[in-house]
Design a protein around this nucleic acid. Structure first.
Length: 636
RNA sequence: GCCACCAUAGCUCAGAUGGUAGAGCAACUGAUUUGUAAUCAGUGGGUCGCGGGUUCAAUUCCUGCUGGUGGCUCCA
């Protein structure tokens, strides 16, 4: 009997039933077979040696694809677990999936692992890999599987996973003398792993719940070629150079001090960047019909009890006592905005009312989560609260999405993703209100034809949200912009407007931030550009470098002309060699260096060197001004 | 908050299996007037994160804390 298999290129071929994917790969080419790790049959991942017995679509997965690499990584995790079991026979295992870059496995052993242990594990893994053992799949009944992990290879975590599993016939994989509960698929042989490295070790709660035991998690990565591992490790080193904490120090933008953990100290250059960003947005806000407000940082407890923060956000708040009365330092700006809204009577004709605030908020974050500018305890949100009628929601949310996307374009953030977060456990408002709000956001996203990831249970306590995430230099994703829909706060504060029918109605509130926090945004900006900020953002846009004292007067003239054209210019008149001054300017990542010596003085020109392209030769001052102007216009 | 690791001069780092520490850069002083990524010489600078313990002696060993980094949990 023959079966017909359709390949990704659309061609269909006939094969004898029972043939395996590896046999097919071999028929196509030996090169393909070498690179093959698994296959997809009718969208279901299978092993290369799984016999095929019916017609369908077949895709051979190679290490050239993400899916293929994931199979390799996941299989390496098995090999690692195997090695750990050899070294620590009492080890029990949590989960060991492939992740975006590599894999991890959660391990429960009594020994606290350190860097040296990782090396021992690596050595043992190498032996296993050299042993060229194959992965073989077996399907059991659930009971057989539970028995196996009770009697043969004791593992309470695997039993727990099995107990919660719907699958009636879970699969196990055997590689050498190590067996693991696993859906698969796996690489045909351990020897396919040509290079690997265990990268780090961390604690991780079993099933991600901090009430559970903390297991030890080992992260690692593997490749089918040694050169690929070297490349990856080099990339990691390079990524570390883009770290905003490192660059912030080098470029003298900001600092952190133990006197204020989680609180940023902005230096003059950093503050200039901060203001440039803020001013940019102020202009946009005017354009987009926002009014700017400023509300107090310290507000009475009664307000926070009313808003729901007392019940839902207290652990993150700071409190102070004033005149024997209790006050809180604001963690959010919304209650303040509500007070402003309520200070006058509103007509439906006033809506939507868009109140923007660069709100200085304080949040008591747990010590272990602080991280440079990414996660601080005091930050400025480019917040806004839009009060509108229910009919205006779609349009306003859409406008917010457009606004965010426009701003990200200006800052050259192209690689961001969007998430929709729904009702969390701790929340206020009825089911009906939540459903309504969640649907509204979902509709806005699908109407705008935007791809997004659903993030169940991750909304704010008062409403669902659309979040914009950007990756840092280490590929960690951080939330920047957010659009949150809120039917509850208007209830709590009894917000009203008079409708066209003359009756009182309740407005809806949209909380939105575009940068999210200016601090976090700047961190992303610095990492994204590796510290080489575009001209319009650079704290120092050019530096004037006279060759010797003889050009001081001429240099001063040029300096003043550039200054009066509105640029941020430095003047390095020190008695140093030009090479030295250039080096310093280069290290400071200053976009333009203006070098002035005898020749420039004689023909009344300037020599220009750029940080990105090096020496541009002589030109008129006006030529440079035009060039800089157009760069600033284009924000490049 | 939890797990692991780290903390030496302004910065980047070295160092002693326990006998109170060094380099480069930076800073300061002087000389040098310079052509596209480091001119030369000299000088000053450290309670080796903080507290406790062991010891004749601790920056080094043990321990508690603080701060940071990578994760987990939580979140902009």
């Amino acid at each position: 009997m023959n079966i017909n298999l359709t390949f990704p290129d659309g061609t269909t071929h006939s094969f004898p039933a029972g043939i395996s994917s590896s046999e097919i790969a071999k028929k196509i080419s030996s090169g393909l077979l070498k690179k093959s790790v698994a296959a997809k049959f009718n969208e279901k991942s299978i092993d290369l040696d799984t016999p095929l017995n019916s017609d369908g679509n077949l895709e051979i997965l190679t290490v050239d694809t993400d899916d293929g690499m994931h199979v390799l990584w996941h299989s390496t995790a098995h090999i690692m677990a195997h090695a750990i079991k050899k070294l620590y026979p009492e080890a029990q295992f949590g989960v060991g999936p492939a992740i975006e870059n590599g894999f991890y496995y959660d391990i429960d052993i009594d020994t606290k692992l350190n860097q040296d242990d990782l090396q021992r594990i690596e050595e043992t893994m190498l032996e296993i890999i050299k042993g060229d053992s194959s992965f073989s799949r077996e399907e059991l009944t659930k009971k057989e599987a539970i028995d196996f992990f009770t009697e043969n290879q004791v593992d309470k975590y695997k039993i727990e996973l099995l107990a919660d599993m719907d699958e009636e016939h879970p699969s196990i994989y055997q590689e050498g003398d190590f067996t693991d509960l696993c859906r698969g698929p796996h690489i045909p042989s351990s020897s396919m792993v040509k290079a690997f490295k265990l990268l780090s070790i961390a604690g991780a709660y079993w099933r991600g719940d901090e009430k559970n035991k903390m297991l030890q998690r080992i992260y690692g990565i593997s490749f089918p070629k040694k050169s690929m591992l070297d490349e990856y490790l080099y990339y990691l080193e390079e990524a570390k150079k883009r770290d905003h904490k490192k660059l912030g120090k080098e470029l003298d933008l900001y600092s952190f001090h133990r006197e204020g953990p989680g609180f940023v100290f902005w230096h003059p250059k950093g503050m200039r960047l901060y203001r440039t960003i803020e001013n940019y947005l102020v202009e946009k806000l005017n354009q987009y019909g926002y009014g700017e407000v400023k509300t107090p940082i310290i507000l009475n407890d009664t307000l926070w009890k009313k808003s729901g923060h007392w019940d839902n956000y207290k652990e993150n708040m700071y409190f102070v006592e004033i005149d024997e009365d209790s006050y809180a330092i604001k963690p959010m700006n919304c209650p303040g905005s509500c007070l402003i809204y309520n200070s006058t009577l509103h007509s439906y004709r006033d809506l939507p009312l868009r109140l923007a605030e660069f709100g200085n908020v304080h949040r008591h974050e747990r010590s272990g989560v602080l991280n440079g500018l990414f996660r601080v305890r005091q930050f400025t949100q480019d917040d806004a609260h839009i009060f509108c009628t229910p009919e205006q929601i779609q349009e306003e949310v859409k406008a917010c999405i457009d606004f965010v996307q426009e701003v990200y374009r200006d800052f050259q953030f192209s690689d961001y993703h969007i998430e929709l977060s729904t009702r969390p456990e701790k929340s206020i408002g009825s089911d009906e209100i939540w459903r309504q709000a969640e649907n509204a956001l979902q509709d806005a996203l699908s109407n705008a034809r935007i791809d997004y990831k659903l993030n169940p249970g991750d909304g704010a306590f008062y409403g669902p949200k659309i979040d914009f995430h950007v990756r840092d230099s280490l590929k960690r994703s951080w939330q920047l912009g957010t659009i949150q829909l809120d039917f509850s706060m208007p209830e709590k504060f009894e917000l009203q407007y008079i409708g066209s029918d003359g009756d009182k109605h309740r407005p809806v509130m949209i909380h939105r931030a575009i940068f999210g926090s200016i601090e976090r945004f700047i961190a992303q900006l610095v990492e994204h550009h590796g510290g080489r900020l575009p001209l319009w953002l650079a704290p120092i846009q050019a530096v004037v470098l006279p060759l010797s004292d003889e050009q001081l007067d001429y240099s001063t003239q040029m300096y003043l002309q550039l200054k009066s054209a509105g640029y941020n210019i430095d003047f390095d008149s020190r008695n140093e060699k030009i090479g030295y001054k250039i080096r310093e300017a280069e290290l400071g990542k200053i976009p333009y260096m203006i070098i002035l010596g005898k020749k420039e003085l004689e023909n009344n020109k300037i020599s220009v060197r750029t940080h990105s392209d090096g020496d541009l030769g002589q030109m008129e001052l006006d030529d440079l001004l035009n060039r800089m102007n157009s760069e600033i216009q284009q924000k490049v």
